[in-house]
């Protein structure tokens, strides 16, 4: 049984009388501990799929099964409780936090909301989470806007793993980071996956990164699946027009491909 099974997902937006089909009859599944990448040009519907899977927006049609439950049928307190199992990391680590928050408060919220640690235990749990993502525990009292972008993205990952989820949706989670920091964050994600068997829905427009971290990839074009399959196979020999265009537009890719072959 798949961890996440999405079938015929469709989402339309109406804008100024015109209807945009942001996600058009998309189906896929993710297995436990697997990384599925969603790649495609800007506006191809990647973020919309992420928000649909997280129930931040509701689809116009389709079904989402998560951990063997009809995820779209969950409501209210049941849905909020189940959210512990399905977490998210955004692209802009500054926008993803309340501008008034401290690191400690950001990490305390999930622990409190899901009753994971009592009030007295929380500081210890927060320190452990910070250490788990490679940060010093004394970062806890700092304000979010005081720390660096790379540290912030580590805090975002710490928040995402605080509730021990089985799936994390990463929407361009490394795209805004410097190349060196990006490598470190990717290593952290791979390490977490190996040790905790977390599955990732990894969204990126960077095929080089996708090829390095994903098991399988789905290429999106204008809301539809253009091509899907083993990440290396698809990226090394794309069949679809959009796949060929994306590979041609990724300069760093040539090197990686040659290294591998």
């Amino acid at each position: 049984m798949s961890l996440l099974a999405v079938s015929s997902l469709t989402k339309r937006y109406r804008r100024g009388g015109k209807t945009v089909i942001a996600v058009d009859d998309v189906s896929f599944h993710i297995e436990p501990g697997e990384t599925l990448a969603l790649a495609g040009p800007s506006g191809s519907g990647k973020s919309t799929i992420a928000r649909l899977v997280l129930r931040l927006i509701e689809p116009d049609a389709g079904a989402i099964e998560f951990e063997s439950d009809d995820f779209l049928a969950l409501r209210g307190a049941t849905l909020r409780a189940r959210r512990a199992r399905l977490q998210m990391v955004f692209q802009d680590p500054l926008a993803a936090f309340n501008p008034r928050a401290t690191v400690a408060r950001v990490l305390e919220d999930p622990l409190r909301i899901h009753g994971i640690a009592s009030r007295t235990e929380r500081p210890r749990r927060i320190a452990a989470l910070l250490e788990r993502v490679g940060l010093a525990a004394d970062l806890a009292p700092r304000a979010i806007h005081e720390i660096s972008g790379g540290q912030r993205q580590r805090v975002a990952i710490a928040r995402a793993i605080a509730t021990r989820p089985s799936l994390i949706v990463l929407d361009e989670a490394v795209s805004a980071l410097d190349v060196s920091v990006r490598g470190q964050i990717l290593d952290l994600l791979l390490d977490l996956q190996r040790k905790e068997r977390i599955a990732y829905l990894f969204i990126s427009h960077d095929l080089g990164v996708v090829r390095a971290v994903a098991h399988r990839v789905i290429l999106l074009d204008a809301g539809r699946i253009a091509e899907s399959g083993d990440a290396r196979a698809v990226i090394d020999a794309p069949q679809s027009a959009i796949g060929k265009a994306l590979v041609a537009a990724a300069p760093r890719l040539k090197g990686t491909t040659q290294d591998a072959s």
Binding site: R51, L54, L56, L79, R80, A81, R82, R83, A84, L86, Q87, M88, F90, D92, A95, A96, F97, N98, P99, D109, P110, I113, H114, R159, T163
Partner: peptide, 21 residues
């Protein structure tokens, strides 16, 4: 904003999001 989406994603109650976030 993303941080409100984050608050929903961690399962925060809507009233807490409205008044605290």
């Amino acid at each position: 904003r993303d941080y409100v989406a984050s608050a929903r994603a961690i399962g925060m109650h809507p009233l807490e999001i409205a008044f605290r976030e």
